[in-house]
Design a protein around this nucleic acid. Structure first.
Lengths: 227, 227
DNA sequence: CAGTGTACTTGCACTTAGTTCAAGTACGGG
DNA sequence: CCCGTACTTGAACTAAGTGCAAGTACACTG
């Protein structure tokens, strides 16, 4: 093995730094090569494609997020902290807001966030379906907020996705369009399992998450509080 | 003026059809030209760039959304309908989930959704700050959910944004990262106006929107309802 | 110490996609 | 019949992802 040799980890760290500084569009293989003082194509020995590189960078970025213990701080505080720390991660790495769209579905076990968020509500004694909906609602709220900084970066820029088998993926997307719950590994497990006791449809999840929010607003309205 | 001539509207309609069928990545100028039975570069006489074309397509797609009258159906029903119809639009046009990130900031007065959503809560008698937060929370919830179908399309694909002046946009993005409220024209107007009575910070908006949701969940938890 | 295989690294080149531009073309008006 | 305006075209430039054949350097073996 040569001595001063590239490693996949070096590449991922350099990619994160580059993404943070230049944004998702700033990450070109040639630019990354320049940063590593290496030919652009040298990266391809260690990493299959640019997509995989971004995914690895996203994995590494998620690992930075500190997740609270719901048993110690209570479910409300845990939910808020989970949401805010995740949001802080999105703020620190704005490219994640864009990349996470694809990252969501890169496979189960990749993100600790979904499992943890669900556990928060389960620990509080929510009925399974309600825990699912609450976790999904909070996460999509964070994700929606995370898109704001990403949108600012995207201002006056170009957004593009590329790949093959568009028609099939498209059909699948429409079929599952409302089912963000399915994109969380443990929720998917529960939903797809034959023994699952999950009774709600994806539409239920969306509607009830929304009405859950409205209940909260109504309480504030009733209290007439101008905070 | 020649007889069988392209129009900007024809191009936009073709672009929407193409985006719906092939996704954001499927829209290449050459493919669009083929669909219009015209050279790819003919489009450039009518439309400045591909970015502008996507923006025009997004404008046209938003125009399809039916928005309810809060005075007639009540604010809760109006909020749900606004959210669901907007979500349906994102489902019908999954590329919007990606494109909207940039679309959000293309300028004020482009989307009816934000104004309408705010009006819903104002009509219900919410305090201004609470109305802002509720509108922002609901919208980000929809937006987060909308990202799920987009994510499915993005599966195994590539996400990229391109453009210039990255550093400045990036700094601006970080500064305003939590302020999704600012991305809504009327909210921005209220926040930036010297006479504004809006007292909350963007962080307040995020935290209070979140706790508003949690209040709703708590009510459901207390009711012990397994719906 | 010489040889050899493995683990990289490199430059070249191919491809796709956005965009520009000089050169056309067609149609309405005079 | 001519001419100008309003388009349309094909060639070409650029940037970026990626494959490939060829090279290089290090560790290990004998």
């Amino acid at each position: 093995m040569p001595r001063n040799t590239l490693t996949a980890d070096q590449i991922v760290q350099a990619a994160i730094a580059h993404l943070d500084e230049e944004g998702l569009d700033g990450l070109t293989m040639r630019a990354l090569g320049k940063r590593l003082d290496v030919a652009a194509t040298a990266v391809y020995w260690h990493i299959k494609t640019k997509d995989e590189l971004v995914r690895l960078a996203a994995d590494a970025a998620w690992a930075e997020v500190e997740l609270p213990d719901p048993a110690r701080v209570g479910w409300r505080a845990a939910a808020v902290r989970t949401a805010t720390s995740s949001h802080a991660m999105f703020t620190r790495h704005p490219w994640m807001g864009q990349a996470f769209g694809g990252y969501l579905l890169y496979g189960p076990g990749k993100s600790r966030h979904d499992d943890h968020l669900l556990a928060v509500y389960e620990a509080a004694g929510f009925a399974p379906a309600d825990a699912d909906r609450a976790a999904a609602a909070v996460f999509t709220y964070v994700l929606g907020n995370a898109l704001a900084p990403a949108a600012m970066v995207a201002l006056n820029r170009r957004l593009a996705i590329g790949g093959e088998d568009a028609a099939r993926a498209f059909a699948e997307a429409q079929e599952n369009s409302v089912a963000i719950a399915r994109t969380f590994p443990r929720l998917r497990e529960r939903i797809d399992s034959p023994a699952a006791s999950y009774a709600g449809t994806p539409e239920d999840s969306f509607e009830l998450g929304l009405t859950g929010m409205l209940d909260g607003f109504q309480a504030r309205l009733a209290a007439g509080a101008e905070r």
